[in-house]
Measured scan of single mutants.
Amino acid sequence: LPHTAVCLVCGEAGKEDTVEEEEGKFNLMLMECSICNEIIHPGCLKIKESEGVVNDELPNCWECPKC
């Protein structure tokens, strides 16, 4: 993702460097949905019932829970 990318919900950049544990890092890193192209911190999504499908081949790419 470009350095200028920010979260659609909170308007902040990736914050994964501020935590140690892997789950915390994931919730604070910016992810781009391969379907709707929205860039968001997974932790900013209010959807709890399902998780997005992470694409292991492309960094910061997933199918968000909304899609």
Rank of each mutant, 00 (worst) to 15 (best):
E49Q: 10
N55A: 09
E32G: 10
V53M: 10
N60Q: 08
C10E: 05
P2S: 15
V9G: 06
E57Q: 09
G14S: 11
E16L: 06
L30D: 00
C7V: 01
L30A: 04
L30F: 01
K25A: 06
I40R: 07
V19K: 06
N55D: 11
V54W: 09
K15C: 02
E38H: 02
G24E: 12
A5N: 10
L58M: 14
N27K: 13
F26V: 08
N55Y: 04
M29G: 06
K66W: 01
E49H: 10
F26M: 13
E12K: 08
G24R: 09
K25C: 05
V6T: 14
K46L: 12
G14T: 06
E23R: 10
T4I: 05
I47H: 06
H3P: 08
A5C: 13
E51N: 15
L30M: 04
E22F: 00
M29C: 11
T18S: 09
I47E: 12
M31V: 06
K66G: 06
L30E: 06
S34C: 10
E20F: 05
K66L: 01
G24C: 04
I39A: 11
K66D: 10
W62C: 00
A5Q: 09
C33T: 01
T4S: 05
M29P: 06
E63N: 06
I40F: 02
K48W: 09
F26R: 11
C44A: 01
V54H: 01
V9N: 15
E22R: 11
V19C: 15
E63G: 06
W62M: 04
N27I: 06
L8M: 14
L8V: 03
L45M: 12
C44W: 01
P2A: 15
I47S: 11
E23M: 09
T18H: 04
C67V: 00
L1E: 06
E12R: 11
P42T: 02
V54C: 06
E63Q: 08
D56G: 13
V53W: 09
G24N: 14
G43K: 06
E16Y: 01
K15T: 07
V9R: 05
L45Y: 05
K66N: 03
E23W: 03
L30W: 05
E32F: 07
E21Y: 11
E12S: 06
H41P: 06
K25G: 05
E51I: 07
D17H: 13
C36F: 00
C64W: 01
G11D: 02
L58E: 12
D17C: 12
K25R: 05
V6R: 05
I47G: 12
G43E: 07
K15I: 05
F26Q: 04
G14C: 00
T18A: 03
L30I: 04
L45G: 09
H3F: 04
C64S: 01
K46P: 13
I40G: 06
N27M: 13
E51D: 12
M31I: 06
W62E: 03
E16G: 08
S50Q: 09
P2N: 15
I47T: 13
K46G: 14
I40E: 02
G14M: 07
E32L: 12
C67E: 02
E12M: 13
H41W: 00
L45A: 06
I39Y: 13
N60V: 05
C44E: 01
A5K: 12
E63A: 12
I47F: 10
S50E: 12
V9S: 09
V53L: 09
K25L: 03
P59K: 13
V9W: 01
D17Y: 05
E22S: 11
L58V: 11
L28N: 15
K25V: 03
G43A: 13
E20N: 13
I35C: 09
E49P: 12
E63M: 11
N60M: 06
A13H: 04
C33A: 00
L45T: 09
C61W: 07
P65K: 06
D17L: 04
T18V: 02
S50D: 13
T4H: 00
L58S: 13
I39G: 08
L28R: 08
G43W: 03
M31K: 09
E12F: 01
L30S: 03
C44K: 01
C61P: 10
W62A: 03
N37H: 13
E12T: 12
E49C: 11
G43R: 07
L58W: 08
M31W: 06
H3K: 15
P59H: 01
V9T: 14
A13V: 13
C44V: 00
A13Q: 15
E38W: 08
T18W: 05
M31L: 10
E38N: 04
C64M: 00
G24S: 14
G43V: 05
M29Q: 08
C67L: 00
A13R: 15
C33W: 00
V53K: 08
V9D: 05
L58Y: 09
P2R: 15
D56V: 09
C67S: 00
E32W: 06
V6S: 09
I35R: 11
E51V: 09
I40T: 14
E63D: 15
E38A: 04
L28Y: 08
P65G: 06
D17I: 13
F26I: 12
F26N: 13
C33K: 02
M29I: 02
I35F: 02
G11V: 00
K25F: 02
C36L: 02
I39H: 15
N55C: 07
C64E: 01
K46F: 07
C36Q: 01
N60T: 09
S50M: 08
F26G: 06
E38L: 06
V54M: 08
G43H: 04
G52Q: 09
N37S: 13
L8F: 09
K46Q: 14
D56A: 11
L1V: 15
C10Y: 02
G52F: 11
P2L: 15
E16I: 03
E20Y: 02
K66Y: 02
G52N: 09
I47V: 12
D56R: 14
E51S: 08
L8D: 02
E21C: 10
E21P: 12
A5D: 01
W62Y: 05
E16R: 08
H41A: 00
E49K: 09
N60R: 10
I35A: 03
C33S: 01
A5W: 13
V54D: 09
P59S: 10
K25E: 03
G52I: 03
K48M: 14
M31H: 06
E16Q: 12
G11A: 08
P42H: 12
L58P: 04
V19W: 04
E57S: 13
G14Y: 09
T4V: 00
H3V: 15
I39P: 10
L58I: 08
D17G: 13
I35W: 02
E22C: 06
I35S: 04
K25N: 09
L1S: 10
K48T: 14
V54G: 07
G52H: 09
V6A: 02
K66E: 10
T4D: 07
C33V: 00
E38F: 01
H41N: 03
D56K: 14
P42W: 05
T4Y: 12
C61G: 07
C64P: 01
